[in-house]
């Protein structure tokens, strides 16, 4: 294994620069997220960073209900990237109740809970 930061730190550093990358296994070709040391499909340590298309489909969604004085409602989704990996995220630019499984979305870099960079999604070709 190489010296230097592990995959979590590499991912975080890229994201802080506004770059969203996932891993791809050089041995079996499987895309991998979250970032890992070895490929969960074949065990190979030959994982390289690649740029995903950003295209994804909502797999499931919930809306956390919060009073307006506590910041109001927000959505939490699981999305399946075109490359075959799933991640938790949020869909912006659409009413919470219009988000449902099957919605086509596209990735961008937005802001997470404590102001750090986070991968978020918007409806594909949608307004906002």
């Amino acid at each position: 294994m190489e010296k230097g930061p592990g995959p979590d730190a590499v991912f975080a550093a890229k994201l802080a620069e506004g770059v969203f990358e996932i891993q791809k296994c050089g041995s079996c070709g499987t895309h991998v997220f979250h970032p890992r040391v070895i490929c969960p499909a074949c065990g190979s340590a030959d994982l390289e960073w690649v740029t995903p298309s950003g295209k994804a489909t909502v797999y499931a969604r919930t809306v956390v209900r919060r009073k307006p004085e506590r910041g109001g409602d927000y959505n939490v989704v699981l999305v399946d990237l075109e490359e075959g990996v799933r991640m938790m995220s949020r869909v912006d630019g659409i009413a919470h109740d219009e988000i449902a499984a099957g919605l086509k979305v596209i990735a961008s870099i937005g802001e997470g809970a404590d102001g750090q960079s986070a991968v978020v999604f918007r409806p594909e070709g949608g307004a906002g």
Binding site: D8, F33, H34, T62, V64, Y74, V76, M87, M88, S89, R90, G112, A113, D114, Q116, A118
Partner: peptide, 10 residues
């Protein structure tokens, strides 16, 4: 979890 915390799931 690290990759869920930014989205504040309960």
């Amino acid at each position: 979890p690290t990759y869920e915390a930014p989205y504040r799931p309960m």
